[in-house]
């Protein structure tokens, strides 16, 4: 009962405190909102990149092209001896070979290997170009097929560039020419670089804006303490505890933090659904996660930033100002 009375008294005092110094309160609020919106926006963009990254098929694929067998060597291969080349080349580099497929499948992070023959490649190409495409006048699947057979390799989604390089090396060691092995390491690296850069910028902005927020809240609290120093002195003479003296200022800070969080969430919603999504949508194939996916985590993160800044900022300056 005693605690509840005191609690409501403090809430009232804290809210009064916000309006006692509206300029400082507004400044604290604005900087905190900026801090949250900037951080939140970056987080949302980064997460959308991640989601698209996973959805992007090409990234997790590798193609090993098979060269047509040179005419001259064909006889040699089907022939009797040539033990050297047989030992060196235990994998068939020119045609489908179960052993090759199994060896690739056995590599770490590889989840699937599909062989695509010259004919299948031709069919696929034909389909993508349409049956009246010009090349059909020149080429035929059986006679003079210009396309190459290939192994299409799919990686597990947690595969990183390092793994891909390793897989490429292992396949090259099987005898395949590195030039015949296509992967998307560059794209992969680019995406990772972009993500890394965005994360770095986001963290710096978060840090800088958070420090500014703290600084403003601290000054706001100090001004409040100063303008109420006589009141505080009286409180202490009549036996107020330190926490009683502190409470309204801390509540003031926390309320500003929570109000900032609510405003930031609203702005973020608008930014995300109207602005960011609109911009991203121009790059077709990219999928945008719905805002509701982020609602809970953003609310918690914003509330956390707000409460932490409010608590920390006010407590520090009370400590510095009052030797309570």
């Amino acid at each position: 009962m005693k605690l509840i009375n005191t609690f409501f008294f403090h809430i009232g005092q804290g809210i009064k405190g916000i309006f006692r110094n509206p300029i400082m309160s507004t400044a604290s609020l604005l900087v905190l909102v900026c801090c949250m919106v900037v951080t939140g926006t970056f987080a949302l963009i980064i997460d959308n990149i991640n989601k698209n990254f996973e959805a992007l098929d090409d990234v997790n694929k590798m193609i090993v092209w098979l060269d047509d067998a040179p005419e001259a060597e064909e006889g040699e291969e089907s022939g009797e001896s040539a033990e050297e080349s047989k030992e060196e080349n235990e994998y068939n580099l020119h045609e489908y070979d179960k052993k090759t497929e199994d060896a690739i499948k056995a590599l770490e992070h590889v989840v699937d290997v599909v062989f695509m023959s010259k004919q299948e490649a031709f069919e696929e190409f034909k389909q993508s170009e349409g049956s009246d495409a010009e090349f059909l006048d020149w080429f035929d699947a059986e006679e003079n097929n210009p396309l190459r057979a290939s192994y299409r390799i799919t990686f597990a989604s947690d595969t990183d560039t390092e793994n891909i390089r390793y897989i490429k090396k292992a396949i090259a060691e099987m005898g395949f020419n590195e030039e015949n092995i296509d992967e998307n390491i560059d794209l992969y690296d680019n995406l990772i670089n972009v993500k890394g850069a965005l994360t770095t910028i986001a963290l710096w902005l978060l840090a800088v804006l958070f420090v500014i927020s703290l600084f403003i809240i601290m000054n706001s609290t100090r001004l409040g303490l100063h303008s109420r120093r006589e009141e505080i002195q009286i409180m202490r003479y009549v036996g107020a505890t330190n926490s009683f003296v502190r409470a309204p200022f801390v509540i003031e800070g926390v309320v500003i933090g929570l109000v900032s969080a609510a405003i930031a969430l609203g702005i973020e919603y608008y930014l995300y659904t109207q602005v960011i999504s609109g911009v991203i949508r121009q790059y077709e194939a990219i999928v945008i996660a719905p805002f509701t996916d982020y609602l809970l985590v953003l609310s918690i993160a914003f509330a956390f930033i707000g409460v932490f800044a409010g608590l920390f900022g006010s407590v520090i300056s009370i400590r510095k100002y009052l030797k309570v």
Binding site: M1, K2, L3, N5, T6, V238, G239, A240, F244
Partner: peptide, 10 residues
Amino acid sequence: FAMRVVGARP
């Protein structure tokens, strides 16, 4: 006020 400070009941 002096009573509030010590948490007295309304």
